[in-house]
Simulated scan of single mutants.
Amino acid sequence: MMQGCENVLARTLPRRAPRVAYRNGEVAAALAEHGTLAVLGFGSGVSASEDPRWLRVALESFDAPAPLELWQVDAEVSHGRDGAVRWAAGGGWLFAAVELDEAAHGGPGGAATHAYQALRQLVEGRAERHVLRIWNYLEAINRGEGDAERYKLFCEGRATGMGAFFAEGFPAATAIGHHGPAGRLQVYLLACDQPGERIENPRQVSAWCYPRQYGRTPPSFARAMLLPAQDALAISGTAAVVGHASAHEDDLHAQLEETFTNLEALLARGRLAPGFDTQSPLKAYVRHPADAAQVREFITRRLPGVPVLLLHGDICRSELLVEIDGWRYA
């Protein structure tokens, strides 16, 4: 009887957050480590692997060589493939990813619908059904005018593919434009068998409440997600947006200042101490390569010692020059 009570207790304790870190090294060695849930590489220069836990993200890094991003849990990890979806699971956590060619699905909207349907079908059949964080990378995110802009079409397709799965609330998310293979859509996620706590920024309108000017279907994401044990905050793509409007057009420094004000607002709302430390990896997506050095200098001065991966990526609004996401551990 006591043993049974202990087993129930073990299942109901909040799940410790996966450890996310950047590391230089070989893909095979990272995959061979105990508890490796996922390994992400950036750009065309990284080696390939058929392991379902490996994903080469179609974003080039301004660092050479670019470090790998490792997700690790305190458990044995199983992995496999379910149609187009690759997955890995262990310790109550799930990594899942899908890559699609838009041409096979009628464009960005159809590809997003198909990707989210495939991921939803996988997650619905598993214990790890609480999707906490999603990353979306699509080519030429700002191409097209008005409602025909590719990002807006992606948002429509994403909502269709989600269906009612996120009726109780959206996950944290990032959507960035890559300069890699034409028409490639990459979506990957982190899910858990326990729910997190959605965090909104009091300085911003919630994304799903944006007015009509941002498309027929507003973006569907939370500004951040506090993980089940409240030991980490997964921060969505954060930029110089106040209310629902972009701020400081064409002023990189002012956009960086506004972005950091938004990051601090999320930390406060998540009941975390101000600032970031050496265990809190961030990504900075920079629209113009010529701005990379200035972004690096700003972040290094503001956050000395904090690991930051600088990537060439287009923000979902053409007037925004930089976006930051990442992790803050308690």
Results as ranks from 00 to 15, higher is better:
residue 156 E to D: 14
residue 98 V to K: 06
residue 197 E to T: 15
residue 240 A to R: 01
residue 314 D to I: 11
residue 99 E to G: 02
residue 87 W to E: 04
residue 47 S to G: 14
residue 7 N to M: 14
residue 265 A to I: 05
residue 49 S to Q: 01
residue 78 S to F: 15
residue 53 R to M: 03
residue 234 A to Y: 12
residue 314 D to P: 08
residue 93 W to A: 03
residue 6 E to A: 15
residue 77 V to M: 05
residue 194 Q to I: 06
residue 295 V to E: 02
residue 65 P to V: 08
residue 130 H to K: 09
residue 236 S to T: 06
residue 172 A to H: 09
residue 71 W to F: 05
residue 55 L to T: 13
residue 259 T to L: 12
residue 83 G to W: 11
residue 202 P to F: 03
residue 27 V to I: 04
residue 311 L to H: 01
residue 70 L to A: 12
residue 52 P to L: 08
residue 205 V to A: 00
residue 247 A to M: 12
residue 23 R to I: 12
residue 326 G to F: 00
residue 210 Y to H: 07
residue 91 G to N: 08
residue 6 E to Y: 14
residue 231 D to A: 08
residue 196 G to C: 09
residue 327 W to V: 12
residue 121 Q to F: 02
residue 220 S to W: 07
residue 293 A to T: 10
residue 96 A to G: 01
residue 205 V to R: 02
residue 12 T to H: 09
residue 146 G to S: 06
residue 31 L to K: 07
residue 28 A to E: 15
residue 259 T to W: 03
residue 226 L to D: 05
residue 192 C to D: 04
residue 57 V to R: 00
residue 58 A to W: 01
residue 173 A to R: 06
residue 266 L to E: 02
residue 93 W to R: 02
residue 58 A to V: 07
residue 186 Q to W: 07
residue 113 T to M: 10
residue 44 S to P: 10
residue 252 L to A: 10
residue 55 L to F: 07
residue 328 R to L: 00
residue 149 E to H: 02
residue 18 P to G: 08
residue 121 Q to P: 05
residue 163 G to K: 09
residue 108 P to T: 15
residue 6 E to D: 12
residue 305 G to V: 06
residue 135 W to F: 12
residue 278 T to P: 11
residue 18 P to L: 05
residue 250 D to E: 09
residue 127 A to L: 13
residue 188 Y to C: 13
residue 70 L to N: 03
residue 23 R to E: 15
residue 169 G to W: 11
residue 51 D to N: 12
residue 219 P to M: 04
residue 133 R to Q: 13
residue 130 H to I: 15
residue 179 H to L: 05
residue 113 T to L: 10
residue 257 E to S: 05
residue 29 A to N: 11
residue 200 E to M: 11
residue 222 A to V: 11
residue 220 S to H: 15
residue 224 A to T: 11
residue 142 N to L: 15
residue 275 G to Q: 04
residue 164 A to K: 09
residue 82 D to S: 14
residue 256 L to D: 01
residue 276 F to I: 04
residue 204 Q to L: 10
residue 36 T to M: 02
residue 252 L to G: 10
residue 9 L to W: 13
residue 281 P to V: 03
residue 217 T to A: 05
residue 114 H to R: 14
residue 240 A to I: 15
residue 324 I to L: 13
residue 177 G to S: 07
residue 164 A to H: 05
residue 86 R to M: 14
residue 175 A to K: 01
residue 124 E to M: 06
residue 327 W to N: 09
residue 194 Q to F: 02
residue 102 E to D: 05
residue 280 S to D: 08
residue 324 I to G: 03
residue 330 A to S: 09
residue 228 P to W: 03
residue 233 L to C: 12
residue 118 A to S: 12
residue 41 G to P: 04
residue 132 L to Y: 02
residue 193 D to K: 07
residue 228 P to T: 11
residue 305 G to M: 07
residue 144 G to N: 01
residue 111 A to H: 00
residue 160 T to G: 09
residue 35 G to C: 11
residue 184 R to N: 08
residue 204 Q to A: 03
residue 298 F to E: 05
residue 134 I to F: 06
residue 46 V to C: 11
residue 165 F to K: 11
